[in-house]
Design a protein around this nucleic acid. Structure first.
Lengths: 232, 232
DNA sequence: ACCTGAACACCGTTCAAGT
DNA sequence: ACCTGAACACCGTTCAAGT
């Protein structure tokens, strides 16, 4: 009997709990089952531990969410580092564009992350550090501090690589279509026209190419900032 | 005894519960005590009723939140209507700018509303109707359907009058300052410079003028869209 | 020092019962 | 038809107790 118990203990040697392990488990759960599944009890279960044990390593659930933000920004910094320093010929536009699109990749891996980021009431140090880098790029490109400041406001969350869309024309059209299209045409003639004008062979699939739309918006903003910078 | 009971009944005559009353109560609670206070039980209490009674008028809490979005958009439509039709000389830019700034007023009254709007997984009809109006303005201004579509993506939630800011330079500086400023200068030199360069007599108060920043960003985007439209 | 069991005060929601 | 009481299956979190 003692042997059997020892064997089991060997099979699953207890790795000590730590803040880091708690946060990584939290991210794993959100990735797998969504943000609603991210509960203290579920994190504990993932770690083979009782829920109350978590409180020795994090103050409370809010602290877990703050920590999750740190993890996500850690991934962004890592991705930025891997992408390497900007090509020598790169102006501020190219450098900022690349950084933002690199950061965006991380949010594509963690679709729930924007919601967590925007729910935080205090700005985490990691986010501050990221924005410091953005301002650094702008300054190197000849921006005044004032214009750099405004640039942060214009970019908003897009500086980190995501934008919140409140309305997805593609989604509206995926509902089963015939009667729906008529309703649309009657009540929302402009949107109906927009959908009709887009002659996608599949009907509506791929109407919104996320990457294309994101880059279009980003470039429009970078254009605008450059104009403000040069005063043209 | 019967008299006393009757008297009390008269004091608080039972207005029948309705979907509308449930939603208005929900908005009132969020306005007063924030989004976390918006629970089914709390809504019921606000209406002098048991929590379970609500389920005769709304399917569940998600339906309440969907309904709250309708209420908010109702306020926006009302504000837009009150603002009246655009001045005759107004181009699409002026018309859209006015509409967006009008909508923005509603979100200033309901600071919690953006969080609810962005949390919805399906786009409510009211939001679709609002965006139909935006596309209408763009079309009247000479936008192709394709460019109008992209304009919606560029504007994102800004079309409805709010932007999510992940980083508020002003907030960082309100922390008690001396030692903090040193830390900033060491780890975040670019942001530190940005804060230092802004020679606000009060130190940091009013560093970010919400309205100014919002309009600056909006105008930059409208400029960019106009350039794309005319191909200049 | 680290983990746990039981408990508390909340959630959203179901169901059978009341009027 | 509309409302309710009691209950269920969850939350986050506290506390005293275990090792």
């Amino acid at each position: 009997m003692d042997l059997w118990i020892d064997a089991e203990a060997d099979e699953a040697p207890r790795i000590p709990l730590s803040r880091r392990r708690v946060l990584r488990a939290a991210v794993a759960i959100a990735d797998r089952d969504g943000l609603d599944a991210l509960t203290m009890r579920r994190v504990a279960q993932e770690l083979g531990v009782e829920a109350m044990s978590l409180y020795h390593h994090v103050a409370n659930k809010e602290a877990v969410l703050d920590g999750v933000v740190e993890v996500i920004l850690g991934e962004i910094f890592q991705a930025v580092e891997q992408a390497g320093s900007p090509a020598p010929g790169d102006d501020w536009r190219g450098a900022l564009r690349t950084r933002i699109l690199t950061a965006r990749e991380v949010f594509l891996r963690h679709r729930w992350a924007p919601q967590v980021l925007t729910s935080r009431t205090t700005t985490s140090t990691a986010v501050v550090a990221y924005y410091d880098g953005v301002v650094g790029i702008l300054r190197a490109g000849g921006f005044s501090f004032d214009l750099a400041h405004r640039a942060l406001h214009v970019l908003g969350s897009r500086a980190l690589g995501f934008a919140q869309e409140l309305f997805d024309p593609g989604a509206a059209a995926t509902e089963d279509s015939a009667a729906m299209a008529e309703q649309m045409a009657e009540h929302f003639p402009n949107l109906a026209g927009m959908l009709a004008a887009h002659d996608d062979p599949d009907g509506t699939l791929g109407f919104c190419d996320d990457r294309f739309e994101f880059e279009f918006a980003l470039d429009l903003i970078l254009d605008g900032l450059d104009r403000r910078r040069t005063g043209s």
